[in-house]
Design a protein around this nucleic acid. Structure first.
Lengths: 236, 236
DNA sequence: ATTATTCTGAAACGATCGTTTCAAATTTTG
DNA sequence: CAAAATTTGAAACGATCGTTTCAGAATAAT
């Protein structure tokens, strides 16, 4: 299929796989008609998809969260999503595509929640401190370790698409932290000579280590102490 | 099998799975004879194990390192180790046991190398700084991300044995860092009011975040800046 | 009501999973 | 050298892997 050169019409090839060749090789159809055909094709849905994709994605996400990508079987996933493999493959695609949807959903939800949380504070430094404390809470009181971190070490090293999604969320969070740090400096709640970019990065990456510490040692006090130190450090 | 109560002899049960019961249910054998039997059993090796277990463990470790526990198949592992599954199961055991041997070997080698590295410095603070810089190097120039971190997020959350091994290495490293920090304080290269325990933990956990940062952003400068900041921070 | 179309559920696909079996090869003991 | 013991290699084990097929149910247009 390609443009005919004549404005407003599109040239379609005609294939003769069964009947003898009685028609020309090509047919020209006006763009308006093609557009209407495409629209009617979209409207003609004999049966609506029954399951809620967003809900299903969330259910799948929790399975990946607990078991990791390689640890989760399609059986685990379709059981949790309460759909048939055929429905899954007809709508979302294969295991990898499902995972990409899950990690995408997860990171977007997190980035959105973070933005909302941060906008609830007038003081930039108080917003930062609250974010750090919230991060500690989620490390200590959430049953699963962060899906983004798990995914970084399981898949992002070898899967460039996954890495790009994680990088995108990281960039957003970094940008938010950076703007907060800059505002805090302006509001004289951080030293004027602070390297804003580096500190934003530094805060962002501290969380990962605390996560690991808590998994290995199961010691809340250790994590809380480190968070307190980081807060003191950036507030001085 | 249990002690007879009579000192120096052990009571063995006798099982009659084929022949009619013509003997007593138990037989008492002196400890000396049992000990000799065990020794001769050990010496009687009709054929020696051909492959070098340590080498094979190292090969397997690299596979787990690249693919993770769930991502590595027994086929991958035996191919890399260049041994037959039967040899593997006869000597080391199943997949999980093999992995435990690998992660154990890995953490012990790391802990040992760290001790050696640290002992090469007279100044405690210089040793710490060198360790931090070495860590940055391994993050930037090693093709695989740290096996201990990968394992923490893939298995340690659910597998208590794996967690214990990781905790053991972490404890050793923590103890080393702690002694270095304390010495640095004594040598007046760190502030006298430094919380040595917390700072040791803090340094230890910073590495993990840098690892994640480099996987996601592939930006060496960012990692180097954070390391420089941490060094400046503990040196002041 | 009929036709056209699409989603669903059950079953099955070949491939691979981790693991086991067993005869042959190999080595030491007596 | 023969007997005893154990590792090795090839093959196969049942189970599960991710994925596909397809008849039938469901729905919309004609």
């Amino acid at each position: 299929m390609q443009s005919s050169g004549v404005t407003g019409s599109i040239m379609f090839p005609i294939r003769y796989n069964l009947y003898p060749k009685l028609l020309p090789d090509f047919i020209f159809i006006s763009e308006t008609i093609v557009s209407e055909m495409a629209l009617s094709l979209l409207l003609l849905m004999a049966r609506l998809v029954e399951f809620n994709q967003q809900d299903a994605i969330r259910k799948a996400m929790e399975v990946f969260w607990k078991k990791g990508y390689n640890g989760a079987s399609m059986r685990d996933l379709t059981d949790a999503m309460q759909i048939n493999p055929s429905s899954l493959y007809n709508t979302i695609g294969d295991k990898r595509q499902l995972f990409i949807r899950c990690i995408d959903d997860y990171t977007q939800a997190r980035a959105g929640a973070l933005q909302t949380h941060a906008s609830g504070f007038k003081s930039a430094s108080k917003a930062l401190i609250s974010i750090i404390n919230e991060s500690v809470n989620s490390i200590l009181y959430s049953s699963n370790s962060c899906l983004a971190i798990k995914t970084t070490f399981e898949l992002a090293v070898t899967d460039k698409d996954v890495q790009a999604i994680l990088k995108h969320e990281s960039d957003l969070t970094y940008a938010l932290f950076l703007s907060l740090v800059r505002r805090a400096i302006e509001e004289k709640e951080m030293p004027a000579d602070t390297d804003a970019e580096m500190i934003a990065d530094y805060i962002l990456n501290a969380f990962t280590g605390w996560h690991q510490s808590y998994i290995v040692h199961q010691d809340a006090a250790r994590v809380k102490k480190m968070a307190k130190f980081l807060i003191a450090q950036i507030s001085s």
